[in-house]
Amino acid sequence: MDISSRRYGDVVVAAPTGRIDHANADSLTAALAPLVDGAASGATALLLDFSGVDYISSVGLRVLMMAAKQLRAQARRIGIAAPQPMVREIFEISRFNMILDLSPTVRGGIERLSPDAAKAYDTAERAGAP
């Protein structure tokens, strides 16, 4: 699974797409590995932009759980932003919303993780960064 990512201040925003289930959970784990490795990423927080995710299964949720554990062990934070309505319901019904911070927008998710990163995001948006 290819995940595009951008860095705003001390927050990395990564955007998986499509379905996350048993067929591609391993590739998601591999794609997230450099992002949850603090030494490699250098960022203090990871925000997953879920606007392009159509579905996530229990296996996919487990991948997020493992990533969150790794990040918290490094005193780093994780958040989920802009989930589609169905995916948001899956987070709520599985109670994953109790352990992962969900924000309706990417901007809001960054703000919750780091106000300074939100400023960097605003600057990049004004500059028309992709």
């Binding site: 949720l61 759980m65 599985s94 109670r95 994953f96 109790m98 352990i99």
Partner: peptide
Amino acid sequence: YSLVDAIS
């Protein structure tokens, strides 16, 4: 259990 409890 809820899923999140069952795997955490």
